[in-house]
Computed example of a mutant assay.
Amino acid sequence: MAASGGPSSPNARNSSSSSSSTAATPRTAPHLPTPLEVLVLAVYPVLLIFGTLFSVLSPETRAVPYDATGQSHVQHDAPSYFARKNNLFNTLFVKRGWGWITLAFVAFLLTHPALASPTRKLKAGIRWALVTGWWVIVTQWCFGPALIDRGFRYTGGKCEVAETAVFEGSHDKADVFTAAACKASGGRWSGGHDISGHVFLLVLGSWFLLQEVGWVVARRGVFGRRDERCVVMADGAVKGASVEAEKEDRTANQGELGLGGKFAIALVGLCLWMLLMTAIYFHTWFEKLTGLLVALTGIYAVYYLPRWIPVLRSIVGLPGI
């Protein structure tokens, strides 16, 4: 009897192993977001759905003509300050959004004690470069026009004035078939599907900051939560992400946001507010949906693929690890 119930018996070890498996069950599969991440990610579609419904149901918004070419309500009849493209939040923040996102990230990277390790700094910098690369490809340049411009053209869109200019031989075709060149030539996008660049930027930038700041702080017991991320090891075993954590110098303020973290969280709040304003006053529901999906594509590649591809994780790391 003692042998069957003793702490060193096979049954006891099996029971212990079973208990460990049960304890690990709440951790999500490596290729999926954790429950906490799912909860935060849900904020984005909720804001977009709420904003879209508000724009349809609000008498003030519904009564104002919508300019499909300009993807906004007619400016002189704008139902709100935030419905005007020239509002300060749009011109000073969203139009320069990636610069603000980068500034907040650098401030956090250079000031938070949990990121003192050169290795952590390097891998965080690589993640920033990858996310920035996705932003560039989608909105700025992709071996020519950006993906947003290419998508618009491939779905039948054109720059009305620029098309005429090309046929008259006054412009080079490669130069005018981008949103910036179209506007510069006095033209307007017409037809085609225009992925919402605002939604893309605001989702990508805010989630980037939440990942980089959130996991650094949350891993240290803030909010009473443990790290629920799992990773696939080189031998195929699935383990908690903490097994790859560096030996930490647990100073008293490592779990605090610090000045850089507070700045980043403030920018996240502003991103969410402007995302709601975009949802209410700009773009069609489908343009907003594709902006969200394109942002999530880049997010998944940088923050979720490494969890189940060990070689990739060895290069880019995980936030907070």
Rank of each mutant, 00 (worst) to 15 (best):
residue 10 P to T: 12
residue 242 S to N: 09
residue 151 G to N: 12
residue 208 F to I: 08
residue 313 R to E: 06
residue 210 L to R: 03
residue 252 A to P: 09
residue 243 V to G: 04
residue 268 V to S: 05
residue 296 L to S: 05
residue 212 E to I: 12
residue 211 Q to T: 08
residue 39 L to Q: 11
residue 103 L to G: 04
residue 248 E to C: 05
residue 90 N to T: 15
residue 4 S to F: 10
residue 75 Q to D: 04
residue 314 S to F: 06
residue 127 R to D: 11
residue 262 K to E: 08
residue 282 F to K: 01
residue 214 G to Y: 05
residue 191 G to I: 09
residue 269 G to T: 08
residue 203 V to A: 02
residue 312 L to P: 03
residue 275 L to I: 12
residue 178 T to H: 06
residue 57 L to N: 03
residue 291 G to R: 00
residue 114 A to N: 14
residue 216 V to G: 10
residue 62 R to W: 00
residue 69 T to K: 05
residue 44 Y to H: 07
residue 182 C to T: 09
residue 55 S to Q: 00
residue 201 L to T: 08
residue 227 D to H: 07
residue 32 L to Y: 06
residue 81 Y to D: 07
residue 301 A to Y: 04
residue 72 S to C: 03
residue 284 T to P: 02
residue 167 F to Q: 11
residue 308 W to I: 10
residue 35 P to D: 01
residue 230 C to H: 00
residue 31 H to W: 15
residue 294 V to L: 14
residue 321 I to N: 08
residue 245 A to L: 07
residue 37 E to I: 01
residue 77 D to A: 06
residue 316 V to K: 11
residue 218 A to N: 04
residue 233 M to E: 15
residue 135 W to P: 01
residue 74 V to D: 01
residue 251 T to Y: 06
residue 4 S to T: 08
residue 286 F to Y: 12
residue 63 A to W: 00
residue 294 V to D: 08
residue 149 D to W: 12
residue 284 T to S: 14
residue 225 R to I: 14
residue 189 W to G: 00
residue 109 L to A: 11
residue 227 D to F: 03
residue 91 T to G: 04
residue 14 N to Y: 12
residue 64 V to S: 00
residue 179 A to I: 12
residue 291 G to W: 01
residue 250 R to C: 06
residue 149 D to M: 13
residue 250 R to T: 05
residue 286 F to V: 11
residue 237 A to P: 12
residue 36 L to V: 08
residue 196 S to G: 11
residue 186 G to Y: 01
residue 20 S to R: 06
residue 25 T to I: 11
residue 196 S to M: 13
residue 99 G to I: 14
residue 248 E to L: 11
residue 61 T to V: 15
residue 236 G to P: 13
residue 58 S to R: 02
residue 264 A to H: 01
residue 300 Y to M: 07
